[in-house]
Design a protein around this nucleic acid. Sequence first.
DNA 1: TTGTATGCGTTATCAA
DNA 2: TTGATAACGCATACAA
Lengths: 335, 335
Amino acid sequence: MVMATIKDVARLSQTSVGTVSRYLNGHHVKSANRARIEDAIRELDFSINPLARGLRTNKTKTVGVLIPELANNFSIQVMEGMEQTLDEHGYSLIICDSRNNIDTEREKLKLMRDKLVDGIILMPVRDEGDHIRDLLDNGLPVVLVDRLITNLSCDGVVSDSVNGAYRAVATIINRGHKRIGIIAGPQNVYTARERLEGYLRALKDYNIQVDESLVYKGDYTLAAGSGGMEYLLGLEDPPSAVFVSNYHLTLGALKAITGRGMTLGADISFFGYDQLECSELIKPPVSVVVQAVEALGRQAAELLVRRMKGDLSGFPVVHRLKTEIVVTDSVKKLI
Amino acid sequence: MVMATIKDVARLSQTSVGTVSRYLNGHHVKSANRARIEDAIRELDFSINPLARGLRTNKTKTVGVLIPELANNFSIQVMEGMEQTLDEHGYSLIICDSRNNIDTEREKLKLMRDKLVDGIILMPVRDEGDHIRDLLDNGLPVVLVDRLITNLSCDGVVSDSVNGAYRAVATIINRGHKRIGIIAGPQNVYTARERLEGYLRALKDYNIQVDESLVYKGDYTLAAGSGGMEYLLGLEDPPSAVFVSNYHLTLGALKAITGRGMTLGADISFFGYDQLECSELIKPPVSVVVQAVEALGRQAAELLVRRMKGDLSGFPVVHRLKTEIVVTDSVKKLI
DNA sequence: TTGTATGCGTTATCAA
DNA sequence: TTGATAACGCATACAA
């Protein structure tokens, strides 16, 4: 297929490439010319060659999105929010999966830089920021989403995980539980630390002594979720309630409970994290902390667009979005 | 950030841009020059400007992926397969969501063409092919995934849905059921037609008369799934078993069953489609037809890569992947 | 406001 | 094998 160029348009409209180019970029053009150019463009089915334009302008109208794991509900919903927003601003998304691997993250980030993206939205694998600082130092806008990075000055949009976890645990306490376990995530991940802190703060505020044996830490995986739940349930003095601090962990923990033939709320009280696709299929439905997933994506995208336009005000900006909690009979009322 | 160019490399390595370019494209270069060029590249942290290269070669090493709905397990897993394969071949993915809307599909397809992608993988919204034929006629490779299109000569990779549905229904019949309902999808979608056909064939082969009142057709949505199940359960003479022919429909149907407080297998026999993330959390686990999701993505990607390399042999190639069925106690044994 | 000419970084053609 | 150079399609500085 041979595409029409700006030259063809100029010829057909009896103007010059300069005029056509100016028309295309929204400059003022005599209305007679404008009309003829528009006709020619329609006639030739012309569209701008983004490569040529990019070569001149050093802009690609493309944003790189790097996610540690595509295959999960949460990531996808965040992505949808971004896709929509960036689409509205005329940006395309190049999407990559870092497969929860910091080396892949480095590599893909380099790939994106080489592909000349105008900006990057990153959900980082873990607390490691040197390679990101490199990008920022080179003037490439980066917005973190879901997770911040210690000692890295970078824009970000995250959920208020401390508060989400706090309210979950406070709810459990208010229903009369004293022995409350937590399945926490890997402590080199921002959200995992925050959620553990929320748990600890709630216990402290309600004067409940922390029992270290009730704090299980694992990766953000299904396996760690079931492993953690097995561990807690196998304790000599098991907790009466468990707070599980991530999507995959929640699925895994529920699997362990179901596997043991136990009933939520009756045999073990349970508070999970993130909306399960099938939350209504489980009896009773599961109490969870729900994040503003779409907003997370939208706001990250909007912030990035602002940066790409050259507005660097307030750097680093961090948005912290409120979470909601859904409380059900999966947490038994002891009082 | 100011990127080094091939010119800088030529200067530093005391060769010419021609030689450097040839080196970069794998042609033969005297080994002394090769060494000096490699040093210079490292020294300057040079990487090829894909815009300039694309402008010359008319290739972007980018593939457009258009999916009717990002936010579902099935799509994502297919996408992961594609991402991995295309990554191996040095292609980036531009991912778009057509939001189950044929106009959006048209629009995004145009956008991708304008962005000069080298090829497109499309999961079409429905049975409409003119806009796709346009692309093919213009020499842009397109591979359909999951769904073919009537009267459109186009490469594709799909599951053998007829067979999947057939075996599901045959399994139900072999467990002694005679009154078997189906929640079918929209008949302008390839997979929906195929799965309905599988159902009908199985009934025919086992000499069971088709009762039209047991055939419910709806969109591929959760709402249609629960609506369909409500309808079937509300019949004067309801079916003893129901085959549900899509992921969303399955979720919706299960929701209706759970909502009525009925138990799978005991009160109603059930066979769904696609792996639910939480299939193990439901008691009893649900019988489903499972597709080779990753393979679907991989093979579509591989086929597209072949086409983009210029190998047009066998067009149109259609791969039809086998499905598996998972059979559980959700289908009651009547005999 | 318009037309002309130059350059963005690469590949490909040509002569050496 | 190499170097010099034209071209890819566009945006922009400059002169008009």
